[in-house]
Each structure stands twice: as C-alpha cells, then as structure tokens.
Write a protein that binds this DNA or RNA. Structure first.
Lengths: 195, 195
DNA sequence: GCTATGCGTTGATTTTTATCAAGGGGGAGA
DNA sequence: TCTCCCCCTTGATAAAAATCAACGCATAGC
C-alpha cells in the first residue's frame, strides 16, 4: 500500500492522512496472475479497477474468426479495466489477461466511488488519470485516421518502447490493427533504411 | 445560463445553489461563430472549453498535403476543445471550426478548475463527461483496429445518425479515415443491398 | 533429448482502398 | 440570371495491406 501512496505522489503533492491511508488499505486488494491467466473474460462484468504493480497485461476482443484485437496494453503502474463494463455493470466485450506473471492491486466499484468522495487526493488522482487517458486516446484515434501502418509502428516505437520490448510482435500487430506479416515487412523495411 | 443548469441536470440531480449559479454565470461566456469561422487554429493554445448550445463544429488536423483529418464532430450539448492543449497550455495541432452558424458558452482553464473544486455538481458533471468520453474513445479505437471501412460507416450510421445528417460526406469520410470516393462506393453498395 | 507449439519471416496472390481524373448537379453570391 | 465553387459520383489505375502457405527457429513440457 506504500506503493500506492507513492503512486499517488506521481500525480499530486496533496497530503494523504493516516486515516485516509487506512481507508485505502481496506479498499485495495492484492491479486496475482500467472502468465496467460485471465483477469476478465468476455461476457463477464468488470467489477474492479486493477493497478499493475508488477508484470504486463493486455485487453483484447476476439472476432468471429478467432482473431484477437488488442485495445490496450498495460505494464507497471498502468490501470487495467473495461471502463464501460466497470461503470455500467454491463457484460464486457473484452478479455483481459496476463502476458507475464503479474501482480495487481484491485478496487471495486463502490469503494472506488466512495474513496473519490472522501479522499481529496483520490479526486485529484482520478482527474489526472482521466486527463492522461483522454490525451492518449485522442492521439491513438488521430494516428488511426491519419498515418500509414508503418508510421503508426514507428510512432509507437518512439512513444511506447516498453510495449515493443515486452510484448510479442503478433500482439503489437494486433494493437496496431495490422497483420503480423505486415508488421514483419514494416520492420524489415525500417531496418534496411536504418530507422 | 439556465441552459447550462438544465445541461447539468442531464448528469446529476445534485443541487446547485443560487450562489453556485452566480459563480457559473460569471465563469461562462457566450460566443457566436459564423459557418466556417475558426474557434481554434493549429499552433494556438486552446484556452477554453466550449459547450455548443446551437450549431455544428468539427475538430481536425491538416496534413502536409493539405488533407483534412477529422478527430471530432460536435453538435448541441457537445464540448469542443483540444484537451491536451487546454490542460498543458501547449500549441494545438488541431483546428476547430464551425460547420454551421454556431453559439457556444465558454469557460477558461482557471475558472474550470476552480468551479470543479467549489461546486460539487461540477465535479460530478466532469467525472461523468470523462467517463462517457473514455467509453466513446475506446469504441472508436476498437472500431479502427477491428472493422472494415464499410462496417465503420454502418456503425456510425447507427450510433451517430445526427452527424451523418448534418455533416457533408467528405467530412464523414475524413472522420472515418477513408477517402470520399471510398465512402461514396460504400454508400452505393449499402444502398443496393438495402442496408 | 525429443516433440509439439508458437512465433516470426518470406513469397505469392487477392482484396481493399487510395489516387487520379472527369463529369454533373446544387447552392451561394454578384 | 449567370458564374463560380464545392460536393458527390464514377471509372481506371496504383498502392497498401490482408490472406494463404510454407519454412525455420526457439521454447516449453514430457
């Protein structure tokens, strides 16, 4: 839980009292997942927000031909959830699983909203999280309608090198919305050009 | 301003005192734009969040060949801003202009954050806005990596018919990340199939 | 050590979409 | 009314990417 207080420190200097720390301690639960173990399966309701303290995960949908489409990667200090399912209590269209052995801390819906009203630092944290998420989403949408597949890959190498290093290429391809073969060709071209 | 209070009512039943109403009144300014008039030009800092009370607008980038790429449409009760530029005070990569004669109410950065801390209903409103935006963004990202151009258009017709009706087809195409010619062909196919 | 599985690469072919070009129609402004 | 500009459609061609297929390599499990 000291980890989480440290985490909040990345976002705000706002003080967290010892009473507030107790509230946080009670609300967050640790969880461990083995590589490939599900956190969420399509059709289930996402009941927790989960913060990765160690490991790597992905969120993806599976199409009617079995193809996987990755909407989100997460590594340490990233949150994993299907936001819509979490907020609305609706069955999720996504799976979330671990690509590496993973450790999380999780919080349920009621606790999340209670902490937001009772702890000012939590309000600041969530506002900041939402802001960063909005900015990142817009960039990804802009890239999707503006850039070629190769440009998107090169952009990802610059902005998210850790994902490139820790996830296999076929998952990178599915995150970029291209086939693994195309990604392989793009990488070869970039290498030959010295990018 | 009664309009804005009504607007908040869409989001929460939380009471807004007459004192709070005064604060809102002072913070929001009306603005009118003629069709095609800029609200924000690329390179400028986005200093306001703007709520459309009447009209239609778009947010788009211009590439080095002069092509326009639309990341956002807005009609009545939609907010228009470059969030990143607004929050960071950085020059925006986007333009925002009016497609129809438009009326707005605007609020600046300091006022926005002050109202958020002073008026509980504003906090609820912004949390809800962020939630809806996150859900919508995820859907758009998922569509971009999962669906064909035609499927994306058909999906847009279902989820955002007002945009289809009020914006010209070349802008719809640029929002979908496809050429106007391709959109024209897609529409013809769908029509011939009775979609 | 052996086998099976999964991943990445490569070539060929097909599909999807972009680009180029031109024509027609509608709307706005003088 | 006339002119100009913009939009949409259509056909032809080019480019980008997907799909199919096969191979080689590395890793995990027995």
């Amino acid at each position: 839980m000291d980890k989480f207080i440290d985490y909040i420190r990345n976002y705000t200097e706002h003080p967290v009292s010892s009473q507030e720390k107790d509230l946080l301690q009670q609300a967050f639960r640790p969880k461990k997942l083995r590589k490939r173990q599900y956190l969420l399966q399509e059709g289930d309701v996402c009941r927790h927000l989960s913060l990765i303290t160690k490991g790597a995960m992905r969120q993806y949908s599976v199409d009617d031909k079995g193809g996987e489409h990755t909407v989100q990667f997460g590594i340490e200090n990233w949150w994993m959830s299907d936001r819509e399912s979490f907020e609305l209590g609706s069955p999720s269209r996504y799976n979330i699983d671990a690509w590496e052995d993973t450790e999380l801390i999780q919080i349920g819906y009621e606790d999340w909203w209670r902490l937001r009203s009772e702890i000012p630092a939590m309000r600041i944290l969530t506002a900041e999280m939402d802001k960063r998420h909005a900015v990142a989403s817009q960039k990804r949408i802009h890239a999707a309608i503006t850039l070629t597949a190769e440009e998107r890959y090169l952009e990802m190498m610059k902005s998210q090198p850790a994902f490139i290093q820790r996830f296999p290429q076929n998952m990178i391809a599915s995150y970029l919305g291209i086939s693994p073969e195309t990604l392989s060709r793009i990488r070869k071209q970039a290498f030959l050009r010295g990018d």
